[in-house]
């Protein structure tokens, strides 16, 4: 058996089209922030340090990705409460469970791909099944790395939604990331947070936002389209809403910071308002994430507006520069604007 390398998947066959500059991957430092966007450095790390000052039971644990999950901020402040477990994600989860058994609240960090794929059974069996107080903060969620499938956690929400007892959070920006940290600790039981690291865009402060576990929040109202989104797609949706104003299209944005438990009440109330097309937008495969969760909820409840779904295709994604990939897979603000306009006809 041989594999074909003659037609590799990343060839640009778009000959004749206007030449675009070749972008570079440099994925370790690739940022989701647009040029000139307001950002905050390491919101998770700083929020955890603040909270840990009054909560001595909080410990930090990582699998050789402290520097890359902003946990190094915590390590620097509390070196004796920081546990470097080596690049061993299964051990990380099992030992975090053990710490929780002994009364501590571990924040365990790695990349979303390694928590969800490498360590899933360890989380399922040692943490979730016993409803232990372990908090997972996992970087590079969805498509936020240009490294190819090994680093693209396109299915993390689907996997953790399917795990009983697990609370699943998908923050939009730096503000929400900060707000989630104390909420995670106040919540009794395991939590999976999609971690935005490094210089994280700051958006929601303009909307007077306050995160609460299990609550979806309307960020802006609009009569023509209701975008229901989570994570960085909410940031995109707000841009789309602004740009569609020029076309006299009135877009509402409902942000769902908690993927599980889903705020069915708010979603149903907003989706039932007549005359609005509902568009779910997620930085995740179209399989098993927010889109299917909302679709199932609406169908089960007999609420059936015109429904559309923006998400990543059910395929192994390419390597490349993030902006290129976000355009290609339809989750950049520009691509979303075009798609939604098309649906409006």
């Amino acid at each position: 058996m041989t594999r074909t390398t003659d037609t590799h998947p990343n060839v640009d066959t778009n000959e004749g089209a206007s030449p675009k500059p070749r972008l570079k991957t440099s994925a370790m430092i690739a940022s989701i922030a647009a040029e000139g966007q307001r950002t905050k450095p390491a919101p998770f790390g700083h929020a955890l340090v603040e909270l840990a000052k009054s909560r001595p039971e909080i410990v930090g644990m990582t699998a050789d990705l402290g520097k890359y999950t902003d946990l190094h901020i915590f390590a620097k402040e509390f070196p004796d409460r920081y546990y470097q477990m080596g690049m061993a994600e299964q051990l990380l989860m099992g030992s975090a469970a053990g710490m929780a058994h002994e009364g501590f609240i571990p924040f365990a960090t790695t990349y979303a791909v390694f928590a969800s794929r490498r360590a899933y059974d360890f989380i399922h069996q040692t943490i979730a099944e016993e409803n232990l107080n372990v908090k997972l903060a996992c970087a590079l969620p969805g498509l936020t790395s240009g490294y190819g499938p090994s680093h693209q956690a396109a299915e993390d929400l689907a996997l953790f939604r399917a795990m009983p007892n697990m609370t699943v959070l998908d923050p939009c920006d730096a503000l929400e990331t900060e707000q989630m940290v104390p909420a995670m600790v106040d919540h009794q039981g395991p939590v999976y947070m999609r971690l935005l690291r490094g210089h994280v865009p700051l958006v929601l402060d303009e909307y007077g936002y306050q995160f609460e576990i299990g609550k979806a929040k309307m960020l802006r109202d609009g009569a023509d389209v209701l975008v229901i989104s989570s994570g960085i797609m909410t940031m995109r949706a707000l841009e789309v809403a602004k740009s569609l104003e020029a076309d006299k299209v009135d877009v509402a944005v409902l942000h769902v910071g908690t993927i599980k438990p889903l705020d069915g009440e708010t979603i149903l109330r907003e989706a039932a308002r007549s005359g609005r097309m509902v568009v779910v937008a997620e930085n995740h495969t179209v399989v098993g994430g927010l889109g299917e969760a909302v679709a199932g909820l609406l169908l089960r409840s007999g609420v059936t507006p015109k429904f559309r779904h923006i998400g990543l295709p059910d395929e192994f994604l390419l390597a490349g520069a993030l902006p290129t990939l976000h355009d290609r897979y339809g989750i950049s603000a520009e691509a979303m604007t075009t798609t939604i306009k098309g649906w409006l006809g």
Binding site: R3, T5, H8, P9, N10, V11, D12, R22, L23, K24, T25, S26, A27, G146, Y147, G148, P149, S150, H151, A319, G320, A321, T324
Partner: peptide, 22 residues
């Protein structure tokens, strides 16, 4: 490591002749 390259920053079998695993 550039868009459209057969040499991505992380080695993958389908991209590069001679790369035997992803």
């Amino acid at each position: 490591g550039s868009d459209g390259s057969r040499l991505p920053m992380s080695g993958m079998a389908a991209y590069t002749p001679g790369m035997e695993m992803s």
